[in-house]
Amino acid sequence: MNHENDDAMPHLTLEYSANLDTFDAEAILLALNEALAACGHFEEIDIKSRCVRRDAFRVGTSSEPRAFVHATLAILSGRALDTRRALSEQVLAVLKTHCGTPSGVHLQLSAQVVEIERESYAKAAIAPSSV
């Protein structure tokens, strides 16, 4: 069964280390949503993204300044591996473009696509009522 475009519903969670002082979560989320909408796999209204700042974090064991930004894109199961790989590369490309690195800080960017079991996922969309 091909599920490339049916029931599209991506959930994007962006985590970043608190030492990224110039991290503009709103701008990065907008850029990610725009990229996902443009890719042709999702309807614009179905893209849900959120950002979580991690105050307690560690990158490796060194005391040198290090930071991270990690994106997890959750999509319904059934898409081809090539599609999932292209989506993670697209998300990573946006992060590379929009994540500034503070001077002297080693920054790691990463992205992954995870699948949500199609059979157990439920969703309801409630449109605003007109007055």
Rank of each mutant, 00 (worst) to 15 (best):
A35Q: 15
A37S: 15
E26K: 01
A37H: 09
H11D: 08
A25S: 12
T83I: 12
F57S: 04
V69C: 03
V113S: 00
Y121N: 05
R85Y: 14
K48L: 05
C99Q: 00
E117Y: 00
A37V: 12
H41T: 10
A35I: 09
V114D: 07
R118K: 05
K96C: 00
R118V: 01
D7G: 13
L32M: 03
S77R: 01
P102R: 08
G100P: 02
G40V: 07
R85A: 13
M9D: 07
Y121C: 00
F57H: 10
H106F: 15
S49K: 03
T83Q: 04
L107C: 04
R118L: 00
P10D: 09
Q90E: 15
F42D: 09
T72V: 04
I47Q: 03
A124Q: 09
V131W: 12
V52I: 10
C39W: 02
D24I: 11
E117K: 01
S63C: 11
G78V: 09
L14E: 02
N5Y: 13
D82V: 02
R50D: 11
V113T: 02
K96D: 05
A8H: 07
V59W: 10
A127K: 09
D24Q: 13
T13A: 04
A125W: 03
Q108E: 13
S63L: 07
N19E: 07
V69A: 01
R66P: 00
A25G: 03
L73A: 11
V69T: 00
